[in-house]
Nucleic acid binder design. Structure first.
Lengths: 204, 204
DNA sequence: AACTAAACAAACTAGTTGGTATGTTTGTGA
DNA sequence: TCACAAACATACCAACTAGTTTGTTTAGTT
């Protein structure tokens, strides 16, 4: 056997992710990646058969981390299972904490890909949909548990309300970029927390 | 004089906008634009000095329409100036109506550009920031008027709350794309309307 | 009818693109 | 120690890229 290729592969993934967020996927050339990663073309195409294979690896890694964050927040708030509302609110608070320390605007690979969808194979786009659906299912459960104990102040569609957290994430990322300042996600998640608090102020 | 070049220029703008939303800006080649618009390279570079000049023209047109929509909704709700809250709510309702009939997910050029910012000159990115600031100022005014009459149920930051409508717009566009179904913006704007309604349920 | 400038068309160029073919180094187990 | 495969490096290519050059058509003006 030769030496391990994992450091090289990881370097390619890390550097190309940064480049994609700055230039877009098709705006990122392989030569740029080689230069930033300090490798050659042979090394790149040893680890990734095509440029699209890199795209797939990138989104797989990103989705894995994403769902991992979601599950971590779920686990952290498991103790509050008794009060369904504080569980939901604390779940959101976990992400407020997570995004609070952030300097530069955060970037999401889903949004990056979805604004040039023709560049990617179908399975890549499907993976994004799957991850969104996982989020939706999780949020629906949390909300439905609240609905057992609380009477919502307004008529709401659970699925739409479940999606709303992702909407705020993605939107906040973009607006943060638009203002070129620091990331604004935390403060916008607070509005979601407010919304939930006001919506479920009355027990059944 | 020769015949008017406006139809050609407009065709270039319309077709290239579609292409950019499918392929991204750097993923859209000039040759692709020529084919879709049914013109030649000479015609293209007669109307736009560089590809980046096209990018600028595209964002200028998009921002103009955007602000025009905003002002139209403002004008339409001017009659409600007496009740500041219903004015704010009806302002949002105008966009709910606008986005309700939509089939395919809507696309925003700001988001498209901001996810490959290195492809564009600074003045293009500045134009995006300016437009966001115009939205912010408008929303701040509407909200501040409400705050004169109403006591908010929770402590809120006006600027952040003003930005929140754009956050929901942009986020809803992306999530809609992710689900590959129809546009979901209208239903997410309803959550914003709910939020405002609950937040300002008590007069001073 | 001759002229003129705007509005194109066609062919070209220099550089870049993703991808390949072929060779070389590296570590490790028999 | 030597075989051998994994992990690279180098040189190359065909296709495509944005942009240019040069020539032609079109429609008002005089």
């Amino acid at each position: 056997m030769a030496r391990s290729g994992k450091p090289t592969r990881d370097k390619i993934l890390a550097e190309s992710k940064d480049l994609v967020f700055q230039n877009g996927f098709s705006g990122t050339s392989i030569d740029q990646i080689l230069e930033k990663a300090g490798i050659t073309k042979g090394a790149f195409f040893y680890h990734f058969k095509t440029k699209n294979a890199l795209a797939k690896a990138l989104i797989e890694e990103f989705a894995l981390e994403d769902i991992h964050h979601m599950n971590a927040a779920l686990t952290k708030t498991e103790g509050l299972n008794g009060d369904s509302l504080s569980r939901l609110l604390q779940f959101i608070q976990e992400f407020i904490n997570m995004m609070s320390g952030l300097g530069d605007p955060y970037s999401c690979l889903y949004a990056s890909y979805l604004y040039e969808p023709n560049q990617f194979d179908q399975d890549i786009l499907d993976q994004i949909t799957d991850t969104l659906l996982t989020w939706r299912k999780t949020m629906e459960k949390l909300i439905n548990n609240v609905l057992k104990e609380y009477e919502p102040q307004m008529e709401i569609d659970v699925q739409s309300l479940a999606d709303h957290i992702l909407v705020i994430f993605e939107g906040a990322f973009i607006i943060s970029k638009g203002y070129k300042g620091k990331d604004l996600t935390a403060e916008h998640l607070k509005h979601l927390k407010n919304y939930f608090t006001l919506l479920f102020c009355k027990k059944k």
